[in-house]
C-alpha cells in the first residue's frame, strides 16, 4: 500500500478536528484575482472529511455484503450448487478486506479551498485529484443518506457545466456542509466566469 493517499506525498494534512485557520475573508467581495498579493492567505490546506464517515461506508459495505452472501447461500441451500458456497466465501472475504481498509480510504478523501479553486482528491488504489475553479460553479447540492443523517453528516456536491467534473465531498458535518455551501456560493459569485 502506498504511504500517502494523494499525489503530493509530502503535503501536510490537517485534520478536520484540529483547529485550523478559517478563511474569514473569502466570503467578502474582494477583487477576484489579487492572489499575487496574498497567495497563501486564503488557502485552507488539505482538509479531511469527518472520521465518522467511515461508519457510513462500513454500513453500506456490510449491507451489500449481506445481500450478496445471502443470495449465494440461498443458492447453495435451495439449489444445492456446490460452487455457491465458494462464491459466498469469496464475497465475504473481499468485503471484509474492503471494510478493513475503509478508515484508510476515508482518510484519503481530502479537499482544499485555494484562492480561486477547489481541490479535491481521494482514493488509495485509484487516486484522483480534481481542481475546479469557483467561477465554474453551476450549483451546490447537499444530500444526506439515512445513515449519514443519523450521524449528522451530509454530502456536498459541486456541479459545473461539465458532467465529468462533478466533485462530491462526502461525510461533512452538517453545519460544516452548510457553511461550506454558503462560502462556495459566495466565492462563485465573486469570481463568476462565463459558461
Amino acid at each position: 500500500m502506498p504511504e500517502a493517499p494523494g499525489l503530493q506525498p509530502d503535503e501536510t494534512v490537517h485534520d478536520e478536528a484540529q483547529p485550523h485557520q478559517q478563511p474569514q475573508h473569502l466570503g467578502d467581495a474582494q477583487p477576484p484575482f489579487d492572489d499575487a498579493q496574498q497567495p497563501e492567505a486564503s488557502d485552507t490546506g488539505w482538509l479531511r472529511v469527518s472520521p465518522k464517515y467511515v461508519l457510513v461506508e462500513v454500513v453500506g459495505s456490510i449491507i451489500g455484503m449481506l445481500v450478496f452472501v445471502g443470495l449465494a447461500l440461498g443458492a447453495y441451500f435451495l439449489l444445492h450448487w456446490q460452487w455457491a458456497l465458494w462464491v459466498a466465501g469469496a464475497i465475504a472475504l473481499v468485503s471484509l478486506v474492503g471494510i478493513a481498509f475503509e478508515p484508510r480510504r476515508v482518510r484519503s478523501i481530502q479537499y482544499r479551498l485555494r484562492a480561486d479553486d477547489l481541490l479535491f482528491r481521494r482514493g488509495i488504489m485509484f487516486q484522483r485529484q480534481v481542481a475546479v475553479p469557483y467561477g465554474r460553479m453551476q450549483l451546490v447540492d447537499i444530500t444526506r443518506g439515512p445513515v449519514a443523517r443519523a450521524l449528522g453528516l451530509a454530502d456536498l456536491k459541486f456541479v459545473t457545466a461539465a458532467a465529468s467534473s462533478a466533485v462530491t465531498v462526502p461525510g461533512l458535518p452538517m453545519a460544516e456542509a452548510d457553511r461550506l455551501r454558503d462560502e462556495l456560493v459566495a466565492l462563485a459569485e465573486s469570481r463568476r466566469a462565463g459558461l
Binding site: G123, F126, Q127, V130, A131, V132, S164
Partner: peptide, 29 residues
C-alpha cells in the same frame, strides 16, 4: 483554457507501478 471547467489527474494501480498518470481536461459534454 478560458472555458475549461476543471482539470483532474488520476493514477491507477498499473500506472503507479510505472510511475505514470492520466490528465483529464473537463469540458462541457
Amino acid at each position: 483554457l478560458a472555458r475549461m471547467q476543471s482539470v483532474a489527474v488520476s493514477v491507477g494501480p498499473i500506472e503507479r507501478a510505472l510511475d505514470l498518470a492520466t490528465l483529464r481536461l473537463h469540458t462541457v459534454t
